[in-house]
Design a protein around this nucleic acid. Structure first.
Ligand code: FES
Ligand code: FES
Lengths: 140, 140
DNA sequence: GACAAATGATACTATAATGGTATCATTATA
DNA sequence: TATAATGATACCATTATAGTATCATTTGTC
């Protein structure tokens, strides 16, 4: 049972780091040094975040990445959606077809309820909330 | 984000089915007919449950499986433990080493809290509770 | 005892998700 | 124009999931 994957975790680390810098733009090189994430992987992640409109990017020397949204507006659920696909409540499947009795299924009702609650809580976690809570989330 | 896998789901279906039969022993053939789960897969699952002491088995003609525990004592968390490995709260890893700052990490604290809550709720779901709640969980 | 009906044990396979690497193109600045 | 940055994209390795397949063993019935 894993709520967030490495992608999501790294993304949140990078975002918190960027949010805490004073500079206009933060480079990948800088983040690699600060966060200890493998460079090409981190590059892929921030590129994705850029594509999603969460980060802004500047090419060329002196370039880098910066937050495009307010720290309170970037939530864990957003990152999960981006890196872990649509947030799907437990899908019961029967030979490629969705289970015919999922309306009446007691187990599904329970799981759905639990997932919904988890999601509302994940939704409350944002860059801002993490930083607030002593959220140093850097390596070394 | 998937709380339970197919294994676990099928296992719970099979267990609920067995619990609702009057007979001494329920055969795999019977369960396949009732639950629509692929036969060899279901066999593997009930064998595992048998090995775990959740089901008792009788070999030979007239044999089959029966519950070895009370329906209230078999919980979703038990099945998750069996089929999805140790229930591990979010593990943050840095190049094979566990993250040096996991004590102070705000993100980890949040995730851990959410997972713990989910687990306590999953722990409350048992064969008995599912059956009680109109728990027909069979396929045609 | 032979046969059939059941489980036990175990090995194998296919697919997808995760966690990355690697490469070349493009842009901006000094 | 050299250099430091991102953009785009393709590729790869490992693991987890979801199964399949096979042969052995036990047990009741005729
Ligand atoms: S049996 Fe399909 S949703 Fe529960
Ligand atoms: S950075 Fe490792 S636990 Fe948060």
């Amino acid at each position: 049972m894993k709520l967030i994957t490495r992608n999501t975790d790294y993304a949140m680390r990078a975002l918190c780091h960027i949010a805490q810098q004073k500079k206009e733009a933060v480079t990948v090189t800088e983040m690699v040094a600060a966060l200890g994430i493998p460079r090409p992987f981190l590059r892929k992640i921030v590129q994705t975040l850029s594509g999603e409109g969460i980060l802004a990017s500047c090419k060329g020397q002196g370039g880098g990445f910066s937050l495009r949204k307010r720290p309170g507006d970037v939530r864990l659920t957003d990152l999960i959606r981006v890196f872990q696909g649509t947030i799907q409540l437990n899908e019961c499947i029967f030979k490629k077809k969705i289970c015919p009795m999922r309306r009446s299924c007691a187990l599904k009702r329970e799981i759905d309820g639990i997932e919904r609650d988890a999601l509302t809580r994940l939704h409350k976690v944002s860059i801002a909330s993490l930083i607030r809570k002593g959220g140093r989330h850097d390596a070394d």
